Simulated assay, not measured.
Amino acid sequence: MRNYNINRLKHKAKLGTIDQDEGKNGMPINVFKAQRDIWFGEYRFSITQDPFANTPVGARNTRAVVIRHDTTVKTWQALEINGLDYQITDIEPDDEVNGLDILTLVAYFDGSDNNGGFDDDNNNGSDQM
């Protein structure tokens, strides 16, 4: 990632986990539990590089972000960006000096929506208040 300008890491997200908790009615619900803040930058693919181009419709809820190389970030964790939860599905590490990792994120769904976890234009894939 030698061509990525470090100044583009200007967005802040919360790194944490998705845990089960008990809702008001006694039913289990998924809750994001923040562990720490992390700075990230947007990462765009060209049409020929896009790994999501030939994937199902649900992949439009997929995005890639760049963070400073961090060995403590794992694929079982999640990021909360602008109130939306994203599961980390892949990490492309760069362990060189001043290395940057590419994280592949998929919008997290708790299964309570009526459209099978696929995004629609009205709620942007978020069932959270």
Score class of each variant (00 low, 15 high):
residue 1 M to D: 04
residue 1 M to Y: 13
residue 2 R to M: 04
residue 2 R to N: 13
residue 3 N to D: 09
residue 3 N to K: 11
residue 4 Y to L: 02
residue 6 I to D: 02
residue 7 N to S: 11
residue 7 N to Q: 07
residue 8 R to C: 01
residue 9 L to N: 08
residue 10 K to Q: 09
residue 11 H to D: 10
residue 12 K to C: 11
residue 13 A to L: 06
residue 13 A to C: 05
residue 17 T to F: 11
residue 18 I to H: 03
residue 19 D to G: 02
residue 19 D to M: 01
residue 20 Q to L: 08
residue 22 E to K: 09
residue 23 G to I: 04
residue 23 G to V: 02
residue 24 K to V: 10
residue 26 G to P: 01
residue 27 M to R: 14
residue 27 M to I: 10
residue 28 P to Y: 02
residue 29 I to H: 02
residue 29 I to G: 06
residue 29 I to K: 06
residue 30 N to F: 11
residue 30 N to I: 06
residue 30 N to D: 14
residue 31 V to R: 09
residue 35 Q to E: 15
residue 36 R to L: 09
residue 37 D to T: 03
residue 38 I to C: 07
residue 38 I to M: 07
residue 38 I to Q: 01
residue 39 W to N: 12
residue 43 Y to L: 03
residue 44 R to G: 13
residue 44 R to A: 14
residue 46 S to Y: 09
residue 46 S to R: 10
residue 48 T to W: 08
residue 48 T to C: 00
residue 49 Q to H: 14
residue 50 D to N: 15
residue 50 D to L: 01
residue 51 P to E: 05
residue 52 F to D: 02
residue 52 F to R: 08
residue 54 N to R: 15
residue 54 N to M: 03
residue 56 P to I: 12
residue 58 G to T: 08
residue 59 A to D: 08
residue 62 T to E: 01
residue 63 R to F: 11
residue 63 R to N: 11
residue 64 A to L: 06
residue 65 V to F: 09
residue 66 V to P: 05
residue 67 I to C: 01
residue 68 R to L: 07
residue 68 R to M: 08
residue 69 H to C: 12
residue 70 D to Y: 01
residue 71 T to G: 00
residue 72 T to R: 00
residue 73 V to S: 04
residue 73 V to T: 00
residue 73 V to A: 06
residue 74 K to W: 01
residue 75 T to P: 10
residue 76 W to R: 11
residue 76 W to I: 01
residue 79 L to A: 08
residue 79 L to P: 06
residue 80 E to P: 07
residue 81 I to Y: 04
residue 82 N to V: 09
residue 85 D to M: 12
residue 85 D to Q: 00
residue 85 D to S: 13
residue 86 Y to D: 04
residue 87 Q to K: 09
residue 87 Q to N: 11
residue 88 I to N: 03
residue 89 T to Y: 04
residue 89 T to H: 09
residue 89 T to P: 04
residue 90 D to S: 07
residue 90 D to Q: 10
residue 90 D to G: 00
residue 92 E to G: 05
residue 94 D to A: 07
residue 95 D to Y: 12
residue 95 D to S: 15
residue 98 N to S: 10
residue 99 G to E: 02
residue 99 G to P: 08
residue 100 L to V: 13
residue 101 D to S: 14
residue 102 I to A: 04
residue 104 T to C: 01
residue 106 V to R: 13
residue 106 V to K: 15
residue 106 V to A: 15
residue 109 F to W: 09
residue 110 D to G: 00
residue 111 G to C: 03
residue 111 G to S: 02
residue 112 S to P: 03
residue 112 S to E: 05
residue 117 G to K: 00
residue 118 F to R: 07
residue 119 D to Q: 14
residue 121 D to V: 07
residue 122 N to V: 14
residue 123 N to K: 05
residue 123 N to W: 07
residue 125 G to A: 15
residue 125 G to S: 14
residue 126 S to I: 06
residue 127 D to T: 12
residue 128 Q to N: 12
residue 129 M to L: 12
